[in-house]
Structure formats: C-alpha cells, structure tokens
Amino acid sequence: MYRSDRITNWISHSFLLILAAGSIIPLILLLSSSFSSEASILKEGYSFFPKEFSFAAYEYLLTNSASILRAYGVTIFVTVFGTFVSLAMTAFLAYALSRRDLPYRNFFTFIVFFTLLFNGGLVPTYLVFTQVFDIKNTIWALIVPGLLMNGFNVLLMRTFFMTSIPEPVIESARMDGAGEFRTFFSIILPLSLPILATIGLLQTIFYWNDWFNGLVYITEPSLFSIQNMLNRMLSDIQFLASSNLGTNTSSAASQIPTTGVRMAIAVIGILPILIAYPFFQKYLVKGIALGSVKG
C-alpha cells in the first residue's frame, strides 16, 4: 500500500467520524434534556448528560396521554392511508402512461410533466382548498394538498414499468384473456415491488414528517398530528398548559415540566422512524440514487 493511500484512508476516517458525530450530537442533546429534571434545565441549561436524571416528562406524558395518543393516531392514520392511496394513484397513472398503445399518450404525459415546471404556489392553492373544496379543519387537509401524488414519482414509476417489464408479458396476459385490471394487479404489481417499496418509503417519511398542511389548514387541536402539536408547542409554550393536554386546572399548570415534556414529545415523534431506519436504510439509499436519475 502506498503511503499516500494510508494517509487518505486516515484522513477519510477521521473526517467522516467527525461528520457522523456532528449528525448525531444534536439528537443526543434532545434525548438528554427529555430525561432531565425541569429545575436542572432551567438552572444549568440544556446539557448532554442529565444533571438530575428524571422521568418526570415521560410520566407526565403517560398520565396526560389522551391528546398525545390522539395526535399519534392522527399521524399514523394520515401516514398509512395517505401512503396507500398515493401509491395506488401513482401506480395506476404511471402504468397507463407506460403503455405504448395508450391513445393521446403524449398529451397525458405532458399534463403530468408540466406540473413539475410550473405551479400556482401557496395562495391560489390555499384558496382552492378552502373556498372551492372546503377541507379546512378536516382530516383530508392533512392528506390531500400537495402530498398525495407528485408528477415526479409518476414519471419515475412510468420509466420503471417501461424498462423493467417486457411488453410480451403484457401481450401474453391479454392473449390469455386477462383484462387490463387483472393484468395490472396479478402481473404488473408483483413485478414492480422494488419501485413500489422505494416510493412508498419516501411517501411514508414525507407524511410522517409533514407539518405544513397542518400549519396552513388545521386550527382545531383534535386534528393535530404529532408534528403540528410540536409546532404549536414551540411557538406557544403556554399551549401545553392551556390545551386539553393537561386535564389539570390552570393553577396546576405551572408545575408542568414544559421543557422536558416538549423534548419528550419530540423524542417520541422521531423514535419510530429512527427505530425502523436500519431496516429501510438500504432501500432509502437506492431510492435517492434512483430519483436523481432522470425519469
């Protein structure tokens, strides 16, 4: 081995180690403060090792869990339902566009493609979803605007169908008398698991992490997702005390471990994704690399 090789290897390891540490360290601060007692945070500030170890924040969450469980439920429902519908819509549209015998195929492809180039932006979108379709303060507001389907995924999936599924396969299914839907469900989908998994995974992450729709369309606390709850708590410390999170009366509100509780909710907000991360990491990397290649 050349000397220069050893040096590059050494430099690479140390640089990447620092970078990896930098990626994790903020999360440790979050975790540590969720286990710190309120008094120690106020006195000593946030720190990487709890000065006074305390489960108070989590105990509080457990005893006042109604609205947190509700928010968790909202997040899970939106994520599961949204991802499922999103995948179905994307796959249907992409499959039809992938078929060379689709009449007016170029026109329909252009309709999808143009949405990548130009968009109306927030104000008209907001007016469409509040004035034309009144979805403000409904669960649909968390699912439909912006997130349900995007042209990029459709084109990505269409390319997959066109390049990975040989035309004779479809042809022979038709010869055997299978209708379009039968072909789609029993032949196309099983052959497309990689792309379905990739896009499904990205959609799941986007839905789980989305707070924007809630910020714009939801004012009713019972429809808050975890992200919206966190969002509201960060902007309004008193929210924790005033909302139905605490069933306590306002006199007891001052005893709520606000800082710790906020950090604890943030922790349980990312925990599911971090726990599942090692299992889907490989697919995520594949998905990102795939997305960068043009559709």
Binding site: F92, L97, G120, P124, V128, V144, P145, L148, M149
Partner: peptide, 21 residues
C-alpha cells in the same frame, strides 16, 4: 379509468391553482 383518479388530483391540486394565479 386507471388514469382518472390521478388526473383529477392533478387538476385540483395543480391546474386549478394555476388558473387561480
């Protein structure tokens, strides 16, 4: 029929706002 849901969504989510400009 397969395309319909997706196209309707694009109409609502993307094209109506464009006219809304």
């Amino acid at each position: 029929i397969m395309m319909l849901p997706g196209l309707i969504y694009l109409l609502i989510n993307n094209y109506l706002p464009m006219f809304g400009l």
